[in-house]
């Protein structure tokens, strides 16, 4: 059993509730113990660091200080939390004057951060710590023939990441491990617009349209994502994209943990498939019945 401090992030309690459910569901069979960080706060994300940067770093650093006490690596499934918490970590390492200031500020809240926590993304942990070999050995319901577009988005691979910033491969390999086929996806690490979907909706819709087009023309039956924002933008806004661009996309957008859970034989209900707006039922039908029978035997 491997132990981690777990940082779900705000989205996993709301728009990305399926990501939280499926992450929890796969952790047992993959022998990971994800211990939720006690009383974590929002990482601050891009909006805070674009408003008041010193406050933003301190808000993120509160989580790092709490995590340091556990002595475990801090793992998050959210790409934005991953990017923001890693950024705070590296800024504190790189700029001693800033570090002194932040220490003084944290002390006002009775906290201390020495700078010893490693911030990690769930996808990287699965790839590097758990390993594809081990995952393969746990696959009881191979997703044979399923064509999946591997969507990495931005902040898992940039600015710092464990994979190539423009042509990453880890998710492709993971999809293949599950018995499915990773389709070519030239826009695999391109932007979905992120939180600009709220203030600059038309701009973001254009980006989402390009992504859906690229995935569809390359023969994908569904998209696998590693980020709550990517999932919401591609799934919940697909209808608006269709009316704006006169298209007829009907492409399910799944969290990679949902597909992983299905291959591990976990019941669809536990993986939150009912939370997906574009239903994956038609595409996943051959595997969901298999998951049920695997589980019953």
């Amino acid at each position: 059993m491997k132990y981690y401090s777990y940082f779900p992030g705000c989205s996993l309690e709301a728009t990305a509730v399926a990501y939280g459910l499926s992450t929890k569901a796969i952790s047992g069979p993959l022998e990971m113990e994800l211990i939720e960080l006690e009383d974590w706060n929002c990482c601050g994300s891009t909006p805070y660091s674009s408003t008041e940067d010193l406050e933003a770093i301190c808000i993120a650093a509160r989580n790092l200080a709490l995590a340091e006490k556990t002595g475990l690596d801090l793992v998050t499934p959210c790409s934005s939390c991953y990017c923001t918490l890693s950024r705070a970590n590296s800024q504190l390492r790189e700029y001693p004057e800033l570090r002194d200031k932040v220490r003084e500020i944290l002390a006002a809240a009775g906290l201390e951060y020495k700078g010893q926590v490693r911030v990690r993304h769930l996808a990287e942990v699965l790839f590097n710590d758990i390993g594809l070999e081990f995952i393969k050995s746990k696959v009881v319901n191979p997703l044979s023939g399923l064509k999946v577009a591997p969507y990495y988005g931005c902040q898992l691979v940039r600015p710092t990441g464990f994979d190539d910033p423009e042509n990453p491969q880890s998710l492709d390999l993971l999809i293949a491990t599950l018995g499915a086929e990773a389709t070519p996806f030239p826009l695999k690490s391109r932007c979905c617009g992120g939180s600009l979907i709220i203030p600059e909706m038309d701009l973001a819709l254009g980006l989402i349209h390009q992504l859906l087009e690229s995935a569809t023309t390359n023969g994908a039956q569904c998209v696998a994502t590693v980020c709550p924002l990517c999932q919401t933008n591609l799934d919940a806004y697909q209808g608006i994209v269709n009316s704006k661009f006169k298209t007829r996309y009907d492409l399910p957008v799944l969290f990679f943990t949902q597909l992983l859970g299905l291959a591990l034989g976990i019941a669809p209900k536990e993986l939150g498939f009912d939370k997906n707006i574009i239903s994956a039922e038609r595409v996943l039908a051959p595997f969901t019945t298999a998951a049920r029978s695997v589980r019953e035997t």
């Binding site: 309690e13 009383d39 706060n41 406050e55 509160r62 809240a109 919401t232 939370k275």
Partner: peptide, 25 residues
């Protein structure tokens, strides 16, 4: 689809957040 809880959650350490922001300001 159960993806928009209407109630906001408050953390226990909200006083720490306030202390951090006051000091940073």
């Amino acid at each position: 689809h159960g993806r928009m809880p209407l109630r906001a959650r408050k953390i226990k350490g909200i006083e720490q957040i306030k202390a951090i922001i006051d000091k940073a300001q």
